[in-house]
Write a protein that binds this DNA or RNA. Sequence first.
RNA 1: GUGAGUGUAGCCCAGUGGUCUAAGGCGCCAGGUUGUGGCCCUGGAGAUCGAGGGUUCAAAUCCCUCCACUCACCCCA
Length: 425
Amino acid sequence: MPVFKAPRGTRDILPEEACYWDWVTSVSKNLCRNYGYGRIETPMFEATGLFSRGVGEGTDIVEKEMYTFEDRGGSSLTLRPEGTAPVCRAYIEHGMASLPQPVRVYYLAPAFRYERPQAGRMRQHHQFGCEVIGDASALIDAEVISLAWQFFEKLGLRKLTLKLNSIGCDKCRPGYIETLKAYYEPRIEKLCDDCAVRMKKNPLRLLDCKESACQYMADNAPRSADCLCPECLEHFNSLKGYLDLAGLEYDVTHRLVRGLDYYTRTVFEIQPESTGSQSTIGGGGRYDRLIEQIGGRPTPAIGFAAGIERIILNLKDQNVCVPGTGSARILIAHTGEEARSEAFSVYSALQCSGIGAIIGAEGKSLKAQLRQANNLDMKMVVIIGPEEMEEEAVVVRDLETGTQKKIDRRLLADALSAFRINISG
RNA sequence: GUGAGUGUAGCCCAGUGGUCUAAGGCGCCAGGUUGUGGCCCUGGAGAUCGAGGGUUCAAAUCCCUCCACUCACCCCA
């Protein structure tokens, strides 16, 4: 018999960790409601071409990280490696261009990338993301960035920094890349092996090399923000103005570039102080060309995504208290066959009136049932045995004080309320 | 895809060739109170020692391969 394990890079979310997931999802939903974002969920897989065209042929995601397979009908499909391209596909497919613009949506969804797993890096991970489609203004950039920041604030995460940059548009970026190449060309001998490859393949990525020799060169390299065309410069400046108005602190990090090809103008990342080598818990940027690249009319847009597993790592790291997951706090114990049936009736009645409870295990001693109640952190035990059957009564025992009293069966629901049972706590 | 480290019950771990039919702690189950939890005492269940192969009279222990986890690189959430 083979022993089955969760596949590499995947993880079970167990009940003991569920409170963190509930916390992250409830914060994100409440926040999005306040910001006027509607929920969207796209399929877990899409036509492969959506990603190769949208994310970019040359990116690591497309080149070596996608879960691509052929279905029985011969179509090439890919497990969603990121959330933005599918949302744009849905925007086009459902004619959302004819809704009032911009369209604001958010999602909570798994993403799949075939990578070497590490702490904070899974083959299946979950993202909270939001996208605003159909508005090119810097005001919307500021909105998305402040939503992202608020999200982490409300979660209770501290010691985060917001990194911001502008990488220009189709008009000014080619010129910037030439400037960058011209800067690196005479220094090519000093570059590390990886950077020699980047020089040819994706010069922008030269900027975020971690080799110390390259770092120095990157620090002193020409900055994209200094090479922006007038429109991009204006956009970047007004964004910074809005962020100042919102009281958001940001570091303009000229070496911030991102690994997906579709970004234009604004890019940003939110980084925790440090959790291993995973330095980003959320990031995003503007992607004004993506929608036309996948077949829509030219439509500006901006988005943001955060990794839920990484958020949870940081919540634990920072000892953030999250609300407990609501759970039954009453156990109905019973001894004897007759009492068992009665216990089940009581149990059903409580459930019907919305009072959470669990029923004691059949065939276990009263002692065992009480021990179980204690181990499960129950607040209250209702005891029904032959004696109570005789008297049409039940015993209600408060496990915290150790006191109990016998009451008339019909008064049970009232009595439980009188004990101020907190069934959610 | 590259490099390094680790792998003994649900969890933490002892054990570095024979005394290991693998020890201890937490947790779980049960008894001590034949209708009462927590503390205490006692007992029990639970391990093909990550998997497969090899060396040896003898392997948890040495060697090889694979798998997984962790860390770093790469990249990203």
